[in-house]
Write a protein that binds this DNA or RNA. Structure first.
Lengths: 343, 343
DNA sequence: TTTATTTATGCAAACATTTGCATAAATAAA
DNA sequence: TTTATTTATGCAAATGTTTGCATAAATAAA
C-alpha cells in the first residue's frame, strides 16, 4: 500500500480559501504585529476549520531554526540522569521545545560523534553532562563557535567557559558532615567516590572542610574510596572500617548505595544511630526503605534539569543576552534528616 | 551579535567544486546505484575535504521523511521507563535514528496533545506506553491512519490493533508463584497492583493460575491491592496480612518496593526464608540491598526497549511489511532466586 | 558499421514556509 | 485639499535537497 499521505493542509490552502496572500497567513501564524485584528481572526478561524498546523520541518528549513534541544548524558537509566532529564523535558515542553536524547555511555569518542551530529542538525541548543572519560572540550567549544547555546550540567568542566548548572557538592557535603558533628560525632569516616571526578573530589573536600572548621582531626585511614559507589563496594569498605584500628562514630557516604551498605554491615555490631550515625547522598528510593531510614542529601536532580532547561532556553530566545559571556548556577541541596543520624 | 552562521557547505558547493551536477552529488550521498565508481570516489573525497554533511532538515523537507522517533511515556524518572528508553535509544542510535522524548504524566489530555504534535511533525515513528488514564485510543488510531509506524509497550491496549511489546506478566507471575510452591509454600498471599491496569491484572491472574494448577486454595483474604505499589502501602498491607486470621507461608508481590516492605515488616515476626518466603517483581536495585536479598522477576526493561525500537524501525524501513497487519511480542522474563525464597 | 541496450549524468521542478521590499489604503499633519 | 506618515497587505525570491524525465556516452547485439 503506497503512502497516499492524505495531503496535508498548507498555508497556501488557507490563503486561497480566504483570498489573501500567503504572507498574510504566515504573519498571522507567527504573530507578526502588522496584521489587522480582522484578518487575524479570519485566518485563525480558517486555520481551525481546516485543521491546519504549521509544518515544523518546512518552517525550520526556511528559518534555520529548530525547536529541538539535544540532551546528552552518560546513561538515561541512572537515577540521577533520568530525574534531570525529566526536569528538562517538563520545562522544555512547557516552552514549546522538544528534547532529543543521546547516551554517550561515558565513551569519549561516542560523545564527540553525538555532539558533532547535533551541531549539524540545527539544534536550538545543547544540554550535556560530559562523560567520565572526557578531559578535552574541543567538541563543546565547536558548539559554542557555531553559536549554539550550550549548558553543561553536573560535571565540572575545567577550562571550558560556558553555562553550567551544578550541585554545590562541596557545600552539601560540608552540610552533611556538619550535621553529624552537631549530632555529637567526634570521629567521622568518609566513603568517597572516584577521585578522578570533580564532584566526588568536591564531596571529599566538603567533608574535610567541615572537620577542619570544627577542629576535628582528618584521619586518612578513615577515608575510603569507592570507585563506582556500588552497594558491594560499600559492604567491603564498611568491613574495612570495622577492622581498622581507628575508631569512628559517624560515616559520611558519597551516595546512598554505599550508605545503605554501611548501615547493613554496621548495624550488626553497633547501634545506629545511638553509637554510630550515618548519612548518605542523593536521596535514592532506598533511603526510606532501609532500617533505620537513611539521612541523606537531596540532590535536587529534577530541579537541576529544570534550571538547565531554563538557562538554555533563555539563551536561545534572547540571543543578545550574550553580552554576558556565560553563567554558572549552583543548585542548592537539601539536608534530609532521618533515623540514621538522629540524636 | 548577529549569528553570522559561518555559512554551511552545501551539496551545491561540492557540485561546483567538482564541476558535476547537484544531482550527481546527491546520488552519491544516498548511494544511488547509477553512479560510477570514479565519480563516487571523487565526490566522497571532496565531501570529506570540504567537511560537508547533509542538512537533515532540508533532506527531511524534500523527502518527507525524518530520522526521528517519538517516544511517549508517563514519566522518564521511573526506573522501568528509563531502562526501556535506554534500550530504545541504544538500538535507534545504532540504526541512525534519534529519539525525541515526551512525558504524559499519566494525563490523558496531555498524551493526546503530544501524540497529535508528533503526528504533525513527520516523525518516522512512535513508541508509546499509554498512561493509566488512557481508555480510548483514537489518538493512536489516527497515528495509524496517518501511516506512521506505531509500537505500544508495556500496557495492553484492548481494542487497539497495533504492534505491541509486552512482558508476559501472566506467565512471569505464574513462574514466581510456582517457584514458591515448589519451595514448599502451601498458603501464598499476593500483594497486587492497581486492578484497573492490565499488567497488574495479569499478575494476579498468573498467581491464581499457579495456585489452581497446584491445587492450592485461592483465598481472597490473602490478596491485597496496593494501588500505587509504594513502599508505604507495602508496609500497611503486610501488617494487614499479619493481623488477618488466615495464615500464610509465602507472599508474591507485584513489585519490589512492596516486597521489600513485606520483608521489613515480617522479618520481625517470622524467619525469612525458613518460615516465610517472599518474591518481588522487577528486579529493582533495592532487591540486592536488603536482607535477606529479594528473589524477584527481572522484567527485562532494557531488552524491551531494544525490541520495541527494532520492531518500529523494521516497520519504518520495510513499509511493504504491512502485509502483516501488526505483531505482538511477548518478552521473556527471568526468575531470579535469591535468599528470600530459598529452601 | 548500424541499431539496441545499458549506464552515467544533468536539468529543473518541487517541497512549505519566511521575509525584505514594494505598494496600496488609511490616517494624520499641513 | 495636498503631502507625509503609518498601517496592512502582497509579490516573489530564497532555502538545500530529492527525484522524474531526458539525454549523452558507452557497450553489446545484429
Amino acid at each position: 500500500m503506497k503512502n497516499i499521505d492524505s495531503s496535508r493542509v498548507t498555508i497556501k490552502d488557507i490563503a486561497k480559501a480566504l483570498n489573501v496572500s500567503i504572507s498574510t497567513v504566515s504573519r498571522v501564524l507567527s504573530n507578526h504585529p502588522a496584521i489587522s485584528e480582522a484578518t487575524r481572526k479570519l485566518v485563525n478561524d480558517k486555520v481551525k476549520e481546516m485543521g491546519f498546523s504549521i509544518d515544523p520541518i518546512a518552517s525550520s528549513f526556511r528559518s534555520k531554526k529548530t525547536k529541538s534541544i539535544g540532551v546528552v548524558c552518560p546513561r538515561i537509566d541512572i537515577d540521577f540522569h533520568s530525574k534531570v532529564i525529566s526536569g528538562i523535558e517538563e520545562y522544555a515542553y512547557q516552552q514549546g521545545y522538544q528534547i532529543t536524547i543521546f547516551q554517550s555511555q561515558d565513551n569519549y569518542q561516542k560523545e564527540k560523534e553525538i555532539v558533532q551530529m547535533i551541531e549539524s542538525t540545527l539544534a536550538a541548543g545543547l544540554i550535556i553532562c560530559p562523560g567520565l572519560e572526557t578531559r578535552k572540550y574541543d567538541h563543546l567549544k565547536k558548539i559554542k563557535k557555531a553559536n549554539i547555546p550550550l549548558v553543561v550540567y553536573d560535571r565540572s568542566t575545567d577550562g571550558l567557559k560556558t553555562n553550567k548548572v551544578m550541585i554545590n557538592d562541596l557545600e552539601a557535603s560540608f552540610k552533611a558532615t556538619e550535621h553529624l558533628i552537631k549530632a555529637g560525632c567526634k570521629s567521622i569516616a568518609h566513603i568517597s567516590g572516584d577521585q578522578e571526578v570533580s564532584i566526588f573530589k568536591a564531596r571529599l573536600l566538603g567533608y574535610k572542610k567541615a572537620l577542619e572548621q570544627y577542629n576535628l582531626e582528618i584521619r586518612e585511614e578513615l577515608i575510603k574510596e569507592a570507585k563506582h559507589l556500588s552497594h558491594q563496594e560499600g559492604l567491603n569498605l564498611a568491613q574495612e572500617l570495622i577492622q581498622g584500628k581507628t575508631s569512628f562514630d559517624g560515616i559520611v557516604c558519597a551516595n546512598d548505595y554505599t550508605a545503605a551498605a554501611a548501615i547493613q554491615t554496621l548495624k550488626k555490631v553497633r547501634r545506629i544511630p545511638e553509637d554510630l550515625k550515618i548519612i548518605g547522598f542523593s536521596n535514592y528510593p532506598i533511603s526510606t526503605m532501609i532500617e533505620p531510614q537513611l539521612s541523606t542529601i537531596d540532590d535536587s536532580a529534577y530541579h537541576m534539569g529544570k534550571v538547565a532547561a531554563k538557562l538554555l532556553i533563555q539563551q536561545i530566545e534572547d540571543r543578545d543576552l550574550d553580552l554576558l559571556d556565560y553563567q554558572e548556577v549552583l543548585i542548592k541541596t537539601e539536608l534530609i534528616v532521618r533515623e540514621s543520624s538522629s540524636h
